[in-house]
């Protein structure tokens, strides 16, 4: 038996974020939220572990009422319970980790599974922070997870090598995208997921002034932008630059 908590992150659909040409600031207000891609892999992995070793999968998502579609997707893949923590909208890793850790402590678990970093802010800090806050070992960037008794074994994917590591449970496992290919749930399961109740828990807003935002703007390109459509002109120019660079 392996009881798994899986953490789901929602983020703005980056494809739909446009830049205001005057202020160069992102226009993010009405951009719909989508599930962070690694979270889908995390849910898939949690469900695969349940299918292999039995146990329960509890999904936790920081969001609001509009997040139920994302939770239903997790249900359709096979999550048993879903908790939406409503009221935390900040984007500060230290606070995110604290809010998550508080909830995780209330739930019996063998493993906490989450993505190793997210596609919007790419901080990759949450796994380490949770490990320290929960005092559970971190097995990071897993490409494979196996459980034997009360021990978890993970293939950790590093930049230059892969290492096989293990620790006793409970522990935190962050996953890499290549761990699995999330399934496309059958229609019956999607429909059943729609009827499943979601627990929503309101929390008081967390306010932090640790980091002050000065600006959030699209970077300006300072390139020359000499674009040639006439190759008789363009190619000699490029060849000149390449020859200069080879010196």
């Amino acid at each position: 038996m392996v009881d798994v908590i899986v953490l789901i992150k929602q983020m703005p659909d980056l494809e739909q974020v446009k830049i205001d040409s005057n202020t160069r600031e992102p226009m993010i207000k009405n951009v719909p939220k989508t599930v962070e891609i690694l979270s889908e892999h995390a849910v898939e992995e949690a469900v695969r572990l349940k299918e292999k070793y039995k146990g329960k999968v509890t999904a936790i998502l920081l969001g609001n009422e509009q997040s139920s579609a994302i939770m239903k997707k997790a249900f359709a893949i096979g999550a048993d319970e879903g908790i939406i923590i409503d009221g935390y909208e900040e984007n500060n890793p230290a606070n995110t980790a604290r809010v998550l850790a508080t909830k995780i402590k209330e739930i019996k678990h063998d493993l906490v599974i989450l993505g190793n970093q997210s596609a919007d802010s790419i901080t990759g800090l949450i796994p380490g922070m949770l490990s320290a806050l929960l005092n559970e070992p971190l097995l990071g960037n897993a490409g494979k997870i196996e459980v034997t008794g009360t021990t978890v074994k993970v293939t950790r994917i590093l930049e230059e090598d892969n290492i096989e590591i293990e620790s006793p449970m409970p522990s935190i496992v962050s996953i890499s995208q290549e761990i699995n290919e999330p399934r496309l749930p059958p229609v019956m399961q999607i429909m059943a997921a729609g009827r499943k109740p979601i627990k929503t828990e309101k929390i008081a807003p967390v306010i932090s002034k640790a980091v002050t935002l000065v600006s959030n703007r699209a970077p300006r390109s300072e390139r020359k932008k000499l674009v040639f459509e006439d190759m008789d002109k363009g190619i000699p120019e490029v060849v000149k630059v390449l020859k200069e660079g080879m010196k």
Binding site: I19, V211, R217
Partner: peptide
């Protein structure tokens, strides 16, 4: 930030 679309300047 935002997948590289913007730059956050922070203090």
């Amino acid at each position: 930030y935002l997948g590289g679309k913007t730059v956050l300047e922070e203090e």
